[in-house]
């Protein structure tokens, strides 16, 4: 009898990942207009200000590549990181510390591995929404030529998975609500500006170039640009593999740190 109902060795219920994702979707639907406008309008302003404003004073980046064409996919990819980072750091911290929603979830039969996966996948979903919106607007402004650019969408998802994991790691080690802002100012902002979205990494001082190359957004920015311009090579493939590796590494770290924080 007992052997017939043996416990599976890996106790992971995908339905709970969907359950957590659905919780976020319902919460998002209730206030989507305010929520998404903040996260779509800002990149569009950046696109206009940097692309058309600053862009007018910048010469072609290389033969046949205008600054607008260079910066537009960069801005699309760079902005994919914010929604995931925000959801999984600030949002996650709110849910676990202030609203005790995580406590409710783990009192229900949700394991932290499923909870973390749901959070990160939702973060990536938000990144996908932003990527799609900004990509559409950039295309309407005539900044995107290649039909391959549609593949920037999965790149946006990958960026979301990476930064979702990173946000959740930070949320589970942040000592206070106050310190949550640090991940945006000390980590998010430099990554946003120095990942090659706004200017080529080659133009940085050679001492800091390696740092720029290992930052978790750089590969995404270059892949997006490669897809938008049709110049997609081995370097871009490698960059995406690196991002995939980061996403796969961050996830277990995130849920183990969550466990350390919540299961006392």
């Amino acid at each position: 009898m007992a052997t017939a109902i043996s416990t599976p060795r890996v106790d992971f219920r995908p339905r709970n990942v969907y359950g957590v994702w659905l919780r976020h979707w319902l919460a998002f639907k209730a206030g989507w207009l305010v929520d998404s406008s903040a996260i779509v309008i800002e990149p569009v302003f950046i696109l206009l200000a940097v692309g058309f404003g600053i862009g007018r004073f910048v010469e072609n980046i290389s033969e046949g590549l205008t600054y607008q064409e260079f910066v537009a996919p960069g801005i699309i990819a760079a902005n994919a990181m914010w929604p995931a980072l925000f959801n999984c750091s600030w949002g996650a911290y709110q849910r676990m510390e202030n609203h005790k929603v995580y406590e409710t979830m783990i009192s229900a039969p949700v394991n932290l591995s499923e909870l973390a996966a749901g959070e990160i996948v939702w973060g990536a979903t938000r990144s996908l929404m932003t990527t799609a919106a900004v990509l559409t607007i950039a295309a309407m402004l005539g900044l995107i030529d290649s039909p391959l650019a549609i593949l920037i969408l999965p790149v946006g998802v990958l960026i979301g998975l990476v930064f979702g994991g990173m946000g959740l790691i930070y949320a589970s080690i942040a000592p206070s609500q106050h310190s949550m802002m640090l991940i945006f100012t000390l980590i998010g902002t430099p990554i946003f500006f120095f990942s090659g979205a706004f200017f080529p990494i080659d133009s940085l001082h050679s001492a800091v170039q390696p740092i720029a190359w290992v930052m978790p957004l750089t590969g995404g920015v270059h892949a997006a640009r490669g897809l938008a311009t049709g110049d997609f090579g081995l370097g871009e493939v490698f960059g995406l593999l690196y991002l995939g590796g980061l996403a796969v590494t961050f996830y277990p770290i995130a849920f183990l740190l969550l466990r350390r924080k919540l299961v006392l």
Binding site: R23, L26, A27, A30, H99, K100, V101, E103, T104, S107
Partner: peptide
């Protein structure tokens, strides 16, 4: 602390 979800009805 109830643990109700303030983002849901």
């Amino acid at each position: 602390q109830d643990g109700l979800d303030p983002d849901l009805n």
